[in-house]
Design a protein around this nucleic acid. Sequence first.
DNA 1: GACTGGCACTCATCAGGCCCGAGTGCCAAC
DNA 2: GTTGGCACTCGGGCCTGATGAGTGCCAGTC
Lengths: 339, 339
Amino acid sequence: MLEERKLEVLRAIVEDYVATQEPVGSKTLVERHNLSVSPATVRNDMAALEEEGFIAQPHTSAGRIPTDKGYRLFVDRLAKVRPLSAAEKRAITTFLDGAVDLDDVVQRSVRTLAQLTRQVAVVQYPSLTRSTVRHVELVALAPDRLLVVLITSTGRVEQRVVETGTDVGESLLGDLRARINLACLGERLVDAADRLADIPETFEPDDRPIVSAVTGTLVEAFSDERSDERVAVGGTANLRHFGDDFDRSIRPVLEALEEHVVLLQLFGAASPRAITVRIGHEVPYEELSSTSIVASGYGPDDDTLATLGIVGPTRMDYPGAMAAVRAVAQYVSQRLSED
Amino acid sequence: MLEERKLEVLRAIVEDYVATQEPVGSKTLVERHNLSVSPATVRNDMAALEEEGFIAQPHTSAGRIPTDKGYRLFVDRLAKVRPLSAAEKRAITTFLDGAVDLDDVVQRSVRTLAQLTRQVAVVQYPSLTRSTVRHVELVALAPDRLLVVLITSTGRVEQRVVETGTDVGESLLGDLRARINLACLGERLVDAADRLADIPETFEPDDRPIVSAVTGTLVEAFSDERSDERVAVGGTANLRHFGDDFDRSIRPVLEALEEHVVLLQLFGAASPRAITVRIGHEVPYEELSSTSIVASGYGPDDDTLATLGIVGPTRMDYPGAMAAVRAVAQYVSQRLSED
DNA sequence: GACTGGCACTCATCAGGCCCGAGTGCCAAC
DNA sequence: GTTGGCACTCGGGCCTGATGAGTGCCAGTC
């Protein structure tokens, strides 16, 4: 009885605080959540919860607000992921179905996510390094200038220009193109890089510098970190939920959003195919310690190619956010599996 | 004597207000700008300036602030573009020189611009439709599936997959590739689309459906509006300069920044190769009427392929902003001319 | 032993009242 | 045309007191 009610009180506090953004006191709590006990009893429970570190008072004679630890407990034990309404599901599907290519899928996902959660949404482009090679094309732009085009399983295209120094014959070009594709097709980019290592040796010594230049460029493209950095961000107007102290609460978030590297770090550690929630100080970036992140990996079939999620104040609607993130991740994953 | 001093007073008011963000009164004005007249005289001039609509009082017994009209006059007649310091120039050059490809140039430009002006920076990706065709490549992904790759003079790459329905022979493929490139190479995309129209007729009737599918896709890629929409945004943390009323001043800007279409409209009308300044109500978007935009076109040689610039509060350092925008636009243009 | 009602106490918030000073317009004098 | 003087305005800062939500504790009840 006692433990159970304490949890119930915590849930009520979290829900109330998230809704009103104001510290919640014993009396209003009893009124709003028709708990069948008196405010005094609730006060005792609150005192216990505070003792255990789940809630705190901003100042004496104010109501209580949940601590990070309190939110943690809430998310782990009290919150069931709120199922989306049929209308919401339909909205997701119809809007995302309209996407014409990978870029568009990502763009639309980010918008959808921002709209559903009313938070800032972040979607990482499918990772280049974890996807596979669909095709490599070599194009002679000039006799001594090659364009190397890499197409991945997710439909992404990377291109590089290689200055070969000497002219490249048509037959060598065809030969090289064939051997590269033979070696790499269907391989994950990380593995494909290994396969390329041996290729130069299979050519005539005279041609090896050219071949090496090309394979070197490809290896570079395969492992290029910059390609991993691409993310789409949306719903920044929802930053208002962070409060009105620009420098203390909004600015760090904006800065983090522009620092894609930081962003990827925040989201990157999301475990595959499960919803990760990081609350307040759990976020591995000091400036964002009053921020929470709800993220999920996604990708075709059961691979995790990239991550998407939302950033919001710790005081957020976790069940709703988790539901939205899960739904969009599932949709995008399915979409990637089809192509 | 009289007209000239009035202008001088206006300049002083603008400069002071931009620096302090506070309405400026006659006394402080005389002190800070060592005008060789008395406050009373300045008051007379201010009364005249107010009469003419160049300045206004937020409320009685407060100092004056410039109106949009006042800023306009300032920009047109009083402001000389402040030359950048050698250090600033060097910073631009060294940072931008490090860019490895088109994406990187754009990314770095946006950062540089944001940093120099301490405002929000926007750089439009070089327009696809106004650039020229460098190369078109056709790749057989499967017998009945072609990948069409378009490379433009700005180094941008677009790719499309075409389902041909029937198998495509190697010789037809080579022939088609050759004729397409012959027709389009060096043409502006808009013109290239016209050149493609006649190509199907030059093939055997049996092959025409395939050829048409390919050229149709290319024409689509040439004129694809979506490709025109890409922009990079940076320095959003500088939104703080807009004030602290999130909903009234910051939010509309954030929303506009996410609406790339709106953004392009705002920047798109920038006249080629000249610096355009839009002040307050001159900005063609109601919500941004307390906002100014400083923009410039850029592109290789004397073409204008796209636009870049900054968005800030009307109360901004116009000479500095104009200098920075001009410098970055020049640099990027030069960079595009080289490749 | 768990719950409840009552009570004294704390403190953030808000409205009202006050003063201060920057800034103005006007006018008479130079 | 310029200047010094003067009376007036009014927003902002600061203090004050009232208000009320909220608390902890304690004694009483089931």
